[in-house]
Amino acid sequence: MRKESAVSATSDLCVHGLAGLHVGGGPALTQVIDIELIVNGRLTSLSLDPRVTLLDALREHLNLTGTKKGCDQGQCGACTVLVNGMRINSCLSLAAMHDGQAITTIEGIAPGENELHHIQAAFIERDAFQCGYCTPGQIVSAVAMLDELAAGQPSQAAEDLSAAPVLTDAELRERMSGNLCRCSAYPHIFAAIRDVAGA
């Protein structure tokens, strides 16, 4: 290992257990990384194997199982969470990459205890789900989508990329296309989001 390399742990990244790591046989000490995440507004400290994805950190280490594992490869959207307000596939991110960042999951999307976000309420009202497994991802995605629209981010459905986006039907569908639903609740998901976003 080239110690002269200036690629090293930054001061805020605590790494231990490096010694003896080798690949391909025999017990090896696994690196452990201490990180802090602000999960649903709460500062949370974790000591993790660096291989732990953000998704598995939430599900297996923080018991926040509302975020779902549908494919574990960024192709279904069931694991969608907000990182510093932006939606991502938490399966394609290491928890360590998010040290110090704010994570919002389905468990933290509502304004308060025993309350629902408007999107959550609309999903119930419109029956925008069946088995419910993609649902947290759909809801988190929809919440983020409305923010993205307000921020003026375009989608491929835009006729004019320079214009401020308007949530046409085609825009809504396109912007929600990163969340698959095999029960195929799309028409009702559409209706629920439309109820909240307005015509």
């Binding site: 080239r2 790591l21 690949v23």
Partner: peptide, 21 residues
């Protein structure tokens, strides 16, 4: 996923140097 060590690069030059490996 095989075990790996995780580091955070502090400069572009360092990242480039590391990537030679």
């Amino acid at each position: 996923m095989k075990p790996f060590t995780y580091e955070r690069a502090t400069s572009v030059a360092d990242a480039a140097k590391a990537s030679a490996d």
